[in-house]
Nucleic acid binder design. Structure first.
Lengths: 255, 255
DNA sequence: ACCTGAACACCGTTCAAGT
DNA sequence: ACCTGAACACCGTTCAAGT
């Protein structure tokens, strides 16, 4: 809602693509198109929630939009391009409200939590995100915010970039596993059952000892633990860490 | 090679599966089968390197084994089950040599590095691993080793389990992105080019400042940075950290 | 016991032709 | 300009029938 920018420019640069459909009427002549990029992505995301990534086909999406499958290819050159547009929208709400905490590590944590929440909000969201490389406004804006928090904390651009990668990769890996565990991993029976059966205490003593936490469904606690480790490591690495009191104004007050 | 254990027991427990093919001759009567689980997984991994995960179909695998596609279903109930067996073999070499370092955090790092190396060793290895939930000997053994290192360092089983998850999720997320970046993300042009084009310094000042590291191809440095953050966080959390000297014997010398 | 042949119910993608 | 109809070249999976 509100002032969310469109996920990608309407006219694609590549020569093999058709003229360039906008999100609404193009010329004003003739009847309005039944399809457009924005609505197609919306319907695709709704369908994703219904049938999952493996069930999301161009034919089913076309049916949901009351159109033949071939018509979709006027707006997305490939299914992968559609998935990329979907991934872009997944992150749409991550920056819709300000980061209030004065503590940079808390602001960083908040961004990571928002990313996890955004991916969890739709069925197979993490898989969609992992399978694409969106470079739209939401994705780039999120990455910019992540690096921005770190640079304002005094990190050099290089370390800030690396740390942002680390946080993103951990969040993606965690959410991928969480989402797989939450819905029984596509086919077959539930995971903890198989794990319990496979872990023979004699062969895997440490695994057996940790079995309660390994089969726990408190994924938030798991995520916070990992995030805490990363933040702890970052704090130890942070430049100019005056141990306590003050130290709130960023070194560059440019932005 | 050597004494690598078979990835999974030959007879499957589920009632809807056929009798139970072993890896070689079953009765000794009749001509030997053209297929078996172990060889099928080997050929599938070789085919994966050739054609990638998206090109790996049951029909192509069957062709590579000089058999019709239907025959594969005597050994694997679904394609997903085959992929799970492949994922299991991916980690086969992770524990084939001892962890020599006396420093627990270095042993943990070594395990994470071996996991990354194992996933990178085959095309789309990280995607195969992420898409499955193997519970075979190699996967469980690796998890047991990870938790074991942490418990020997004095961590309680619960924290050890959570930390093992964190390391695994980071490694998976990183390797997924690394492997995607290494081969131009399936279709389309290379990523850094699109990223450079999309990052307008005015809109994304922090992204622009970090662009060199974001488009760097030194993935090992990136991985080591993230791993270092995690280890730093773990060291700060480690119980009974006698700063230097001795402290090598695990709290329980049972196993 | 193990595999073939043939089918079922789908896929993503292309493109002439209609309107 | 936008969509349909119809096809192309595939998929995963099942299962009677052969040997």
């Amino acid at each position: 809602m509100s002032a969310a920018s469109t996920p990608s420019p309407p006219s694609r640069p590549g020569p093999p693509s058709p003229p360039g459909p906008r999100s609404a009427a193009t010329t004003g002549r003739g009847r309005p198109p039944k399809l457009d990029q924005v609505r197609t992505v919306e319907v695709a995301l709704a369908l994703l929630d219904d049938v999952g990534l493996d069930g999301l086909t161009m034919r089913r999406l076309a049916e949901a939009m009351d159109v033949r499958a071939g018509a979709l290819y006027r707006y997305f050159a490939t299914k992968h391009e559609l998935l990329t547009a979907m991934a872009e929208v997944l992150l749409a709400d991550c920056l819709d409200r300000p980061l209030r905490s004065p503590d940079w590590s808390e602001r960083l944590a908040e961004l990571a939590r928002r990313m996890r929440t955004a991916l969890l909000a739709r069925r197979d969201g993490a898989r969609v995100y992992a399978g694409t490389h969106a470079v739209g406004g939401h994705t780039l804006g999120f990455a910019d915010a992540l690096i921005g928090v770190l640079r304002e904390a005094g990190f050099a651009a290089e370390d800030a970039g690396r740390a942002a990668f680390t946080v993103t990769h951990f969040t993606l890996g965690h959410t991928l596993e969480e989402q797989a565990a939450r819905q029984g991993a596509e086919p077959g029976p539930v995971d903890p059952e198989r794990l319990r059966a496979a872990v023979t205490p004699g062969q895997y003593p440490h695994l057996a000892a940790a079995l309660p936490v390994l089969t726990s469904t408190d994924f938030t606690a798991q995520f916070e633990f990992g995030l805490g480790l990363l933040l702890q490591g970052l704090r130890a690495l942070a430049p100019g860490t005056t141990p306590v009191e003050s130290g709130n104004t960023p070194p560059e007050s440019g932005g």
